[in-house]
Nucleic acid binder design. Structure first.
Lengths: 192, 192
DNA sequence: GCGGTTCTGAAACGATCGGTCCACAATCTA
DNA sequence: TAGATTGTGGACCGATCGTTTCAGAACCGC
């Protein structure tokens, strides 16, 4: 048995996530990743294999620590009728906080969709799966909110809500008011 | 008077647009721009000043040659009642064409929103203005489609439609079916 | 035909890229 | 205490980056 790893993997991946989220995969440089994580590149390569390996770990942390906690109330059994409204209200608050990473950079996965790395099949699949996961969760929230409406109408509402979230994430960096406006539109649709 | 320029500026800018649209500003390399335009880097720098100067020209061409022709029927006076439905139908067709640039890369400006270059104030402004222009045009289309509905309702519908377009553009690379689904959602909302 | 001006292209510049190498440090076991 | 193993860090690798330089080409006016 040799030397023990001197860093906390989760903390390193979270630091790297910040770099990928703000800069995108392509523009995130190894020196920037070194600086954010506090590790030398040898340690990064030893632990993650490559810049892409670190990116994959960062994406997983993004899903586990950013996306899924926000979606959790929509996956409860039963889902509370207000869960979907709270989801949008919470997201709206997050995107309205100037200077914070969600207001500056929206969604790592939505941004990644428009980047060259999204042509990699594994990355493409991950982003598409995320969209499906978001859609399913919002679908549950809408079902809980409007149990009396017919299935087709609830389905359409869930699709609309999903698109409103994606749109807000896509444009928040350049037009925060419009992004918040998209979420407000969803909240109007979700009024009882 | 010296030597005449040997290339057609519009053709060069359109070729460069293809590179920026598929790769994004950051990942578009000068060699790739040379290859696509057929020009040597000296000529590119002589004509456009910098890579960023060429990008600015490409964005302008994107607005003039891609965005505005599609929006033109929504800016007519009067706007035809079906103009907005035709806008969505046409866009849906374009995003469904596998292999073509809109199906592969969506919208240059929406993709740019999530990229580091969007932090440049001029670029940020350009993308935000584009969103406003799209919104205004769709607003006109919705007003023409539903003149009898009250203003607040037409306003909401225009916001929804704008978000559905943005969402479709944002995700088309990774999930074309969902992108087309967003546009179908808009078409449902626009049924008389 | 020559001078002046502008355009083009090959080469080079300094910087940075992602990744590897190798020596040293830190650990455990015998 | 020495050997084996694993982690760390500084230096280096070959390649590529965006941009500039400078010589030659192509034009026009006198």
């Amino acid at each position: 048995m040799g030397r023990a790893q001197a860093f906390d993997t989760d903390r390193v991946v979270r630091a790297a996530l910040g770099v990928f989220w703000r800069s995108g995969y392509e523009a995130a440089s190894v020196p920037a990743l070194e600086e954010a994580t506090g590790l030398n590149r040898s340690s990064i390569y030893h632990a993650f294999g490559s810049k892409r390996g670190l990116f994959d770990a960062a994406v997983q942390t993004y899903l586990d620590d950013v996306v899924r906690p926000r979606l959790r109330p929509l996956l409860a059994d039963p889902v509370a009728p207000d869960a979907v409204v709270e989801y949008f209200t919470g997201l709206r608050d997050a995107l309205a906080r100037t200077g914070e990473i969600q207001a500056d950079s929206g969604c790592l996965l939505v941004n990644t969709s428009g980047a060259p790395i999204a042509r990699d099949e594994a990355v493409r699949r991950t982003v598409a799966d995320y969209r499906a996961e978001l859609r399913a969760a919002l679908g549950r929230g809408v079902d809980a909110r409007f149990p009396a409406r017919d299935h087709a109408e609830r389905d359409r509402l869930a699709e609309l809500c999903t698109s409103l979230v994606v749109s807000a994430f896509a444009l928040v960096r350049v037009d925060p008011d419009s992004a918040v406006g998209s979420l407000d539109s969803a909240l109007v649709l979700l009024e009882a």
